[in-house]
């Protein structure tokens, strides 16, 4: 497959003309580009899923705090609540937000996670894929299909913008992770190729302008909880899309809007910790170590 997949339109055209699913097109392209077989691509994806699961598992049991002492004991609190009472939205909701939190807390402990697309947004894709997989009883191959679908969304967006808060704010980190997860959810829930991309784009549209203003420059406040929120955000994208509700702005134009928004965003709000939450009274007190 000796061509680029740098727009969603191109991706969907290839899927339609070859009558293939998004993950099939992407795994074939990856295999071609790196001169390996499709099986190796899928094995690497499987390895990532295993690492995601083990981060969730260890994250759910640990109470160890980060070096800053700011975060690290929230996932235990959340599970304590669910032992007493069920979430309003049921088991699957509980699992998604628990897994997102568990993964992000492993990250701030300097333990092992999978950057997806970045470490600061590493909780979202695993939370959605693993929770849905457990609740829907997916097999290993179906999990891989979902992860490659998610990855394809990030891959296409990365043609236009680097996945870095310093470049386009949190849009390009948690925002993209949420879009990736929306597509993965639509894949798991049986959507067609257009619905998967539409799910991603609906999620992306709703995070435009999201800044990166971490307190003290740490991947802790607001990153940890933001991962939790945006994992649920992804499900909303998939739910709407599977109902046939479409973004009136086409996918590639939404990405263009996100790129432009990133360019217009002040550098003070792009991973420099010189604006937003980082310079609030308490943000600065936390940053200077005065309070924890």
């Amino acid at each position: 497959m000796d061509f680029n997949i740098n727009t969603f339109e191109k991706l969907l055209n290839i899927c339609e003309s070859k009558n293939k699913k998004i993950y099939e097109v992407m795994q074939e392209k990856e295999a071609f580009d790196f001169d390996i077989d499709v099986e190796s691509v899928r094995n690497r994806a499987a390895k990532n899923i295993e690492a995601m699961k083990s981060a969730i598992k260890s994250g759910m049991t640990s109470k160890e705090k980060s070096f800053s002492g700011l975060c690290g004991d929230d996932c235990v609190k959340l599970q304590k609540r669910y032992k007493k009472e069920t979430s309003l939205f049921g088991k699957i909701y509980e699992k998604i937000i628990t897994y997102a939190l568990a993964t992000m807390e492993e990250n701030l402990r300097m333990n092992k996670i999978v950057a997806c697309p970045t470490a600061g947004s590493c909780g979202i894709v695993p939370a959605v894929i693993v929770a849905l997989s457990e609740e829907k009883g997916l097999n290993k191959e179906e999990e891989i299909n979902a992860l490659i679908t998610a990855g394809t969304v990030g891959y296409v967006i990365s043609a236009k913008v680097a996945m870095a808060g310093a470049v386009a704010g949190c849009q390009a980190e948690c925002g993209v992770a949420s879009a990736m997860s929306a597509a993965a959810a639509a894949q798991i829930l049986g959507g067609n190729e257009r619905q998967k991309i539409n799910a991603a784009v609906l999620a992306l549209k709703n995070i435009l302008g999201l800044t990166c203003d971490p307190v003290g420059g740490l991947v802790e406040i607001p990153c940890v909880k933001r991962n939790v929120f945006l994992s649920i955000h992804a499900i909303t994208g998939a739910e709407l899309s599977l109902a046939g509700i479409e973004s009136k702005i086409p996918p590639d134009e939404v990405v263009d809007a996100m790129v432009q928004t990133g360019q217009l965003m002040s550098p003070l709000l792009k991973e420099t910790s010189q604006g937003g939450l980082a310079v609030t009274k308490n943000g600065l007190l936390i940053s200077s170590g005065t309070i924890r």
Binding site: N48, A51, I113, A119, G120
Partner: peptide, 13 residues
């Protein structure tokens, strides 16, 4: 593709 879903790494960034 694995620039987007990788690396398996030690956190946090």
């Amino acid at each position: 593709l694995f620039d987007v879903i990788s690396p398996i790494m030690t956190g946090p960034s």
